[in-house]
Simulated scan of single mutants.
Amino acid sequence: MKKALLALIATMLISGCSNSNTSASNAPASDTTTEQNQPHQVTDQWVGRRTGVEGLFLEISKDDSAGPGHYLLHMRYGLDADQIDTFEGQASAESIRFNREGGQQLLRAGDGEATGMKWLLEKEDCLVVATGEGYCRD
């Protein structure tokens, strides 16, 4: 009798475990999937041209060949003749990461005050790489 009871309990435990795995695999996608899709939905709104001071500019376009959340950043980021280039960027939590001569950079939303430049103080829709380097929509 004890053996039959132990066998029944073991069977119930095994079937309970397999049912929970099945339930987990049939569960809807978690918030992680939503979070992964969300960054590029925010940064997709940044596509277009923005201007900085003294002829500096940033032009963001989608890099369709690389997939969602990938961008091409064409920018003049300094006054020297060689400080114009196109960089590949990737969306991350409300920013675009890209590599430039100084290493990894982070492009994030801000306002004119966040750029740290008095010429852009009145602007509201800006993207900032670092204090002293920002690009705003007119």
Score class of each variant (00 low, 15 high):
Tyr71Asp: 04
Pro28Leu: 02
Arg76Phe: 02
Glu35Met: 13
Ala7Met: 13
Asp111Cys: 04
Gln104Asp: 09
Trp46Leu: 03
Gln105Pro: 04
Ser65Pro: 04
Lys62Asn: 08
Glu94Val: 10
Asn19Trp: 10
Val128Gly: 00
Gly52Trp: 01
Ser30Glu: 07
Lys123Pro: 04
Val47Trp: 07
His40Gln: 13
Met1Asn: 10
Asp125Glu: 09
Pro68Ile: 09
Gly16His: 07
Ala7Trp: 12
Pro68Cys: 04
Gln105Cys: 10
Tyr135Asn: 00
Lys3Thr: 12
Leu106Phe: 08
Pro39Asp: 15
Ser92Asn: 12
Ala66Arg: 15
Gly116Lys: 04
Trp46Phe: 06
Val129Glu: 02
Thr131Cys: 02
Thr131Trp: 05
Gln83Trp: 06
Thr115Gly: 09
Phe98Lys: 01
Glu122Asn: 13
Asp111His: 03
Val128Tyr: 00
His74Cys: 07
Gly112Asn: 02
Leu6Lys: 10
Ala66His: 05
Gly102Arg: 15
Met12Leu: 15
Asn19Glu: 12
Phe87Gly: 00
Asp80Ile: 02
Pro68His: 10
Leu106Cys: 08
Ala81Gln: 13
Pro39Ile: 05
Ala114Ser: 07
Arg50Ile: 04
Gly48Asp: 06
Glu88Gln: 06
Leu58Lys: 00
Pro39Trp: 10
Gly110Arg: 02
Phe98Thr: 06
Leu127Cys: 03
Arg100Asn: 14
Leu73Gly: 04
Glu59Trp: 04
Lys123Ile: 00
Gly69Arg: 01
His74Tyr: 12
Arg137Pro: 02
Met117Asp: 00
Gly16Ala: 13
Glu133Gln: 15
Glu94Asn: 15
Gly102Asn: 12
Asn26Gly: 08
Ala91Cys: 12
Asp138His: 02
Thr34Tyr: 10
Leu120Cys: 03
Ala91Glu: 02
Ser61Cys: 06
Asn99Glu: 11
Gln104Ile: 12
Ser65Val: 13
Gln83Lys: 13
Thr34Ile: 15
Gly48Cys: 03
Ala7Leu: 15
Glu133Gly: 02
Gln38Pro: 00
Gly102Met: 11
Leu5Asp: 12
His74Pro: 05
Thr115Ser: 10
Thr33His: 03
Asn26Tyr: 13
Arg50Ser: 09
Leu73Trp: 01
